[in-house]
Amino acid sequence: MKSNKASLFNLKAALLVSGALFFSACGGNNKEGNSSTTAGDNLTGSIQIDGSSTVYPVTEAVAEEFRAEAPDVKVTVGVSGTGGGFKKFVRGEIDINNSSRSIKEEEAATAKENNISYLELPITYDGLTVVVNPENTWATSMTVAELKKIWEPAAQGKIMRWNQIRPEWPNEEIHLFGAGVESGTYDYFTEAIVGKSHSSRGDYTASEDDNVLVQGVSTDKNALGFFGYAYFLENQGKLKAVAIDDQNDANGKGAILPSVETVKNGTYAPLSRPLFIYINSKAAARPEVVQFVNFYLDNASDLSSEVGYIPLPAEEIQKQKQKFQEFASGLKK
């Protein structure tokens, strides 16, 4: 998805990360006056970034601001999906990978074989949103079990109509739209809903470009899809979010729509996740990359809010900055 300062989504989103982090007052360092940006005019070089379409709006917003601070550094941001980005990353073809999931064991093994070390940094939070067309008046809420019934591999060629989910729903075909199999969004959704990562029916319209999914659902009364909350918020005039009932959650309160409040208080589950950037250690030895990552962390809170995500708490931002500083410093020894 294309993003620029003038058209950043003036929106907010939210996420609860299961037990690993807990929300307090959200915030971050003010991007004005950050020491990480003062030397930008002296920097040259290039930075190659690829990966998740979900993380793209945040990284592109940061890159756009950084280009103004360091005009002689060429920053390119591609969108080949989390998996596609990792394929390049573990071969040493890019400096940073945007990722909507943690690196897989096989990807880490390939990186090791290629003598590539790296650092994982969480940079913001997201909640996946299940969406339907606004003309869909029946599917206002769904349980995790109902979503699994639709999306599990065994459903292919069998669960094809809305009234197979609930008898009172229309006897009309369901047209499914979702993330491509190279996407971290696909991995997260299938694990949270189906119960196994990278496992789903195959007869759906898949794309690494969330805008394609938005277009598909927004023009089809019988469509059902999923993607990151920021894309829903940007297009909420032509989409409708489905409230999710996590019946496996003992603290559940019925069907819950995604929002800042419901995610913060833990009631929107289980479609919640952190978003990451991965930095190649060789790249982190270059001054332009060090400056860019520091700039990213300094500005992630403000810019992630502007493009529709919820920022890390201020103390977590500081923790990630310290982690990166130790990582980069260790490369010089």
Rank of each mutant, 00 (worst) to 15 (best):
E172C: 03
L176R: 15
L176M: 14
L176P: 05
F177T: 01
F177V: 04
F177N: 08
G178Q: 10
G178W: 08
A179N: 14
G180A: 15
G180F: 02
V181R: 13
V181A: 12
S183N: 12
T185M: 11
T185F: 09
Y186R: 07
D187N: 12
D187S: 13
F189K: 01
E191P: 00
E191Y: 08
A192Y: 02
A192T: 08
I193C: 09
V194L: 06
G195I: 09
G195M: 09
G195C: 14
S199Y: 05
S199H: 08
S200K: 11
R201L: 12
R201W: 11
G202C: 00
T205M: 09
S207Y: 05
S207M: 11
E208V: 13
N211I: 14
V214P: 02
Q215M: 10
Q215R: 12
G216T: 05
G216Q: 10
T219K: 14
T219H: 14
T219G: 13
K221F: 00
A223T: 02
A223W: 00
L224R: 00
F227H: 05
G228K: 02
Y229A: 09
A230D: 12
Y231Q: 08
L233Q: 14
L233G: 13
E234F: 02
E234H: 10
N235A: 10
G237R: 08
G237E: 13
K238C: 07
K238T: 13
K238N: 13
K240I: 01
K240S: 08
K240H: 05
K240D: 01
A243D: 06
A243R: 02
I244A: 04
I244E: 02
D246H: 03
D246A: 05
D246Q: 03
D246M: 03
N248H: 12
D249V: 03
N251K: 13
K253Q: 15
P258A: 13
P258T: 07
S259L: 08
S259Q: 08
S259V: 05
E261H: 10
E261P: 02
T262F: 01
K264N: 07
N265V: 09
P270E: 06
P270I: 08
P270N: 09
L271W: 03
S272D: 12
S272R: 06
R273G: 00
P274R: 04
P274W: 04
L275R: 03
L275F: 06
L275I: 11
L275H: 02
I277C: 04
I279G: 09
I279W: 11
I279K: 10
S281D: 15
S281R: 12
K282N: 11
A283M: 05
R286I: 03
P287G: 07
V289R: 04
V289Q: 06
Q291E: 10
N294I: 05
N294K: 13
Y296N: 04
L297T: 09
N299P: 03
N299G: 11
A300N: 15
A300H: 07
D302N: 12
D302E: 15
L303R: 07
L303S: 10
V307L: 10
Y309R: 01
Y309W: 06
Y309I: 05
Y309E: 03
